[in-house]
Design a binder for these strands. Sequence first.
RNA 1: GGGCGGUUAGCUCAGCGGUAGAGCACUACGUUGACAUCGUAGUGGCCACUGGUUCGAUCCCAGUACCGCCCA
Length: 1025
Amino acid sequence: MPMEKTFNAAEAEARISKLWIDQKVGRAGANAVPGAEAFSIMIPPPNVTGSLHMGHAFNNTLQDILIRWHRMQGHDTLWQVGTDHAGIATQMVVERELARDKSNATRREMGREAFLSKVWEWKEQSGGTIINQLKRLGASCDWDREAFTMSGNFPDAVVKVFVDMYNKGLIYRGKRLVNWDPHFETAISDLEVENIEVKGHMWHFKYILAGGETYEYLEKDAEGQVTLREKRNYISIATTRPETMLGDGAVAVHPSDARYAPIVGKMVHLPLCDRQIPIITDEYPDPTFGSGAVKITGAHDFNDYQVAKRANLPMYRLMDTRGFMRADGAPYEVAVARAREIAAGSPTNENEVDSLNLVPEKYRGLDRFEARKLVVADINAAGLAVTTLVRTVDEETNSEALHLEPVVEAKPIMQPFGDRSKVVIEPMLTDQWFVDTAKIVGLALDAVRNGDTVIMPQSGERTYFHWLENIEPWCISRQLWWGHQIPVWYGLNLDVDSFTDDEGDDALDEVEILNILGDGGYVEREARSHCAADSAAVAEFFRDDLAPLPHPLNAARVVEVVDRHAAVALLAQSLADYNLSQDPTHLTYPIWRDPDVLDTWFSSGLWPIGTLGWPDNTPELQKYFPTSTLITGADIIFFWVARMMMMQLAVVNDVPFKTVYLHGLVRDAKGKKMSKSLGNVIDPLDIINEFGADALRFANAAMASLGGTLKMDTQRIAGYRNFGTKLWNACRFAEMNGVWEGYATAATPPTASATANVWIIGETAKALAEVNEALKTFRFDTAADALYKFVWGKVCDWYVEFAKPLFDGEQAQETRATMAWVLDQSMILLHPIMPFITEELWSTTGTREKLLVHTNWPTYGLDLVTPEADREMAFVTTLIDEIRSARAQVHVPVGLKIDLVAMSLSAESRAAWDRNESLIRRLARIETFAEGPAPKGSITLALEGATFAIPLAGLIDIAEEKARLQKTMDKLAKEIGGLKGRLNNPAFAASAPEEVVDEARANLDAREDEAAKLRAALSRLAEIG
RNA sequence: GGGCGGUUAGCUCAGCGGUAGAGCACUACGUUGACAUCGUAGUGGCCACUGGUUCGAUCCCAGUACCGCCCA
């Protein structure tokens, strides 16, 4: 059955994709020769909730190109595929799904266990979407090894790493100011916060000095002239977040700020609150900004937090997990009384400070933005706003009036938003788990500095260094349910420090038991904690804690309960039972697990070893780790690349990958970020449906120059679809000429005698060398460009045309063999970039031992290039180009055959002519050929080593031909001028390398030779008219 | 404010010491033994600006302007 005119991508891709998957062409080690070197790539695991976007398509195309290239070379390849559980994103999706049906219970109503089983259910149903989309793209992963960060050995690996790092002191728990997402009610890391400029306001408040004090406030201009002098009883502060003033711990001014020097150390009344705070100095306030005085709210601002720590100020938390003003704890009067005691020096601790709710009653329970409005209104009402005189005119009476209005500046402010929730992030003082990154960052920096891991483009290394050198502790706990739960358990601290053994039986008596349970007793103490892989292992630690305690506590059974509340209840129950029964065997010691889960990036940070079976020393781990190359977006260099480096080095003391290839974000044709709101999202599946996966892949490869932005243009994709069609039709032409009959795959080219055949074999070798070199250096664009130029520009534009007359001559047989081989090589070389169309052509042409995906990558070298053939073909193609160009310029109709006269021919040109006459005649549309002088009314063509004339008496417009020649002369003159200028400069000959000088000289000779021929032609024209 | 990068044909980008290339778009012509998802010929550029280094700079260095991205 003859081939169709075009490749039917929609039909063929599905069929070929199934074939590859059924035959497991991408399984680890497929097509590897014995003892082959390993080549491995870890896919950046897409979110299990996700679907394929252009970024994925781009990223995975590049990975697949490398994998296919190495696999065809017989290397032992692994492309590890899988998905990420994506804590927040997945929890969000499942909650949203549940909310669609009002009859469903909410997450909180159904509880942790039931919710998690819903998430798993959802994952089973829709988690495979993106994997199937990768298959449509043609990705040749090892599908049987598909991993998931919540399945298989991954949970164990994550827990083991946590425990190890905990034991090494690399993970700690602490109360820190973290980014709090009030929507998801969890901490998030710095990287999950997007700072966006929004319209905001700056309010100015007066904090009145305590004790009726006043001071002289002076403002000076740059020359030191006093511009303002007034007696003040207040200090003016500016804020964009008025509601936080309720938690202020101080007002800070810069130590060099002379305006406030008289009042540093004095107290001010905190408006709306019944307490006083000090005026302190700190380097943080900028004296030139606003009033130069800053209110310090340590629990709700990152800068203030640092100031508060330096000045040892209490940090009062004002909000709850949803971002509402606190409504818990003691009444305001009680809390504020205690705060005053603390301010006066009463000893306290972090936990007590955190437990004090200093939100006055009227603001309690309000949303933070509601509270803001109310605080502003109340301050205005109290006359504590900084005001300005405003003149108004009454329209009816036309009378002017002056009155004071609060100063509120409208100004853009940077506001933090959650990258998932899109709500305003609240800095919040909470207990969280941290990785002490400062302790593990060193190895990660060194590995890149000493080249164990190479990041490209190199600018990526600079970014990497800059971030790691300034790294902050990594907050790894999330108050979510979907994720790896932190392997830390807590138990009540029952250490009995005042035990008196009245009975001499070394056992607790009833009074002592009551002490344990009683108000303010042991159960109120801070809990003990232990970290271990599971509850059985952790129970050992708690038994060790219990061992030194008096009977019967030392014999208590350790049991796990849900939380501290349940633990206290169970312990009480248990002790009460004991008191009656005196049977210690029933005594239980309850422990509970930390409810938080780990940041998703903590587990994906272990992706390279986790997917290879670690902590078991599997054969895959030995073979494929460290992995060869990581291809990922530059936007996740911090999230993921740097963390994988730190984690792998900390855990297995080896780099996770040898090369990191970073690429930019895929944008639309205009360079805009693709976003749903802009409506400029291009769905790669739509592109595949319209143009085929190969066209998309080729476009991706061609765009992949190092460092640039990636602008996706469907017109360009269409162009590469056309490129596929071009190759298709070259093969179809071959088929129509019987080229494939009896042809079987051959590693080496056929012996050829016709110059065109010899030449194209050499061009094929050049293309191979270029593709190899380009892919070796990750220049996918160069590889694509070289293939495009070879297949279209050499094979189709010239070779196929040359072959047509050759098919009729004595060299028909070798031409068929050569064409088959060249097209074969084209399929092979293109296969990594365009796998579908090439696999399809492969199966419809010739006799094949293996699928193309497993066909051996060629190894022939540039020795196949024959310089004589190159020169000869250069003469032929130049001559044809010149004739065509001349014909077009003097408007010779395409259909008209012309005569050609050779005025002069060098020996080499004559030989070239003789061997290729039929090609030239055909492609330049020549009727007759003769040697001799130019007939009258000819146009002239000057080539190196030859001059030709085309007699066109009566057909040509003399003036037009003159203009044509003059134009060529002008171009030549410009070149000659430049070359002469250089050669006449003595410094050039003296300083430039010899070959450059020689080349310039030879070039000048050739140009002058051509110019002379053209001058002669012009003078001949002058004779005519 | 800090860091990284960009500025080359109408558009999107390569090139990065020997006076410019591709694809697309555009113009004219065109169905010759594969291909109109095509062919042939063509139009189009003080390589942002100012200095410096060099025999020679789009390319290296410094500065300026403008534009991105990331982090505060």
